[in-house]
């Protein structure tokens, strides 16, 4: 049942089309990575520098974080690929559920907070 092979040769027979697809995917992943590092640095600098006011920096870094997470989920973790309908459904449900949760834990803690 189990195909077991010696490790030195490629075991998957890929068509030319699939090879091109994998090459393209490789490029996309590297671009994704560069964007994420760039965003991280941008977020870091917008907080580290005194020039940018917190009222702008906080929403800005939050947006950067959300974009990074989307990239991570959809590119690195392949949620964008086909055959990922159920994972998408459950991850999105999870995300919808946690929004009121986090908001409540942050804000609805009673009149006297501290």
């Amino acid at each position: 049942m189990e195909p077991k092979l010696n490790t030195n040769q490629p075991q998957v027979n890929l068509s030319k089309k699939e090879k091109i697809k994998l090459e393209r995917e490789m490029r996309h992943q590297i671009i994704t990575f560069v964007v994420m590092i760039f965003f991280t640095a941008l977020a870091f600098m917008s907080v580290a520098s005194d020039l940018i006011p917190a009222s702008f920096a906080v929403p800005f870094i939050l947006i950067l974080a959300v974009i990074q997470v989307i990239l991570q989920l959809y590119y690195f973790m392949h949620l964008k690929d086909k055959d990922h309908e159920w994972p998408n459904a459950f991850m999105l449900s999870g995300i919808v559920i946690i929004i009121p949760m986090v908001a409540a834990l942050m804000l609805l803690l009673g009149v006297v907070k501290y």
């Binding site: 949760m101 409540a104 834990l105 609805l108 803690l109 009673g110 907070k113 501290y114």
Partner: peptide, 14 residues
């Protein structure tokens, strides 16, 4: 110590 009892209630009922 800066804590808040309502946190438990939220987590429990979530």
């Amino acid at each position: 110590a800066g804590g808040n009892v309502v946190i438990w209630q939220h987590l429990f009922w979530i």
